[in-house]
């Protein structure tokens, strides 16, 4: 039964991600940039929250739902990889910067949360 609840929480997370992407795509400033700011921010914020919940909050069912469900559905690796390959064709430097920054900042952000 918990699997279905986690799935529904993931659906909510995926919808939140779509909201962020829609908001950024309708801003005239961010849609001009080649650097995919939305996916970057989504992954970093999601990682930060994940580290916070794991290291600071007790291990309850509600926290599992929020961390594994909502935040796990919110962050995405497949879109990130797809964008990296698209960028590699035309903006090799941006692609390398994007990949490097996402992995580095993502790891640092969780490391900061370790008690």
């Amino acid at each position: 039964m918990l699997i279905i609840y986690v799935g529904m929480a993931s659906g909510v997370g995926a919808c939140l991600r779509l909201v962020c992407m829609d908001v950024f795509s309708h801003s005239s400033f961010f849609s001009k940039l080649y650097f995919p700011v939305v996916t970057f921010l989504i992954n970093i914020v999601g990682s930060l929250l994940m580290g916070f919940i794991f290291y600071y909050l007790p291990d309850t069912t509600t926290n599992t739902l929020i961390s594994v469900g909502v935040i796990g559905g919110f962050t995405t690796l497949s879109t990130f990889n797809d964008e990296m390959i698209l960028l590699w064709k035309y903006h090799k430097l941006t692609c390398l910067l994007y990949g490097f920054l996402t992995y580095l900042v993502g790891l640092i952000v969780v490391l900061v949360m370790v008690r």
């Binding site: 995926a14 999601g46 990682s47 580290g51 690796l77 497949s78 969780v110 370790v114």
Partner: peptide, 14 residues
Amino acid sequence: GSFTTFSTFNLDAI
């Protein structure tokens, strides 16, 4: 998009 996850990856690595 909701199947793959970046946050759990970072948490596992740390």
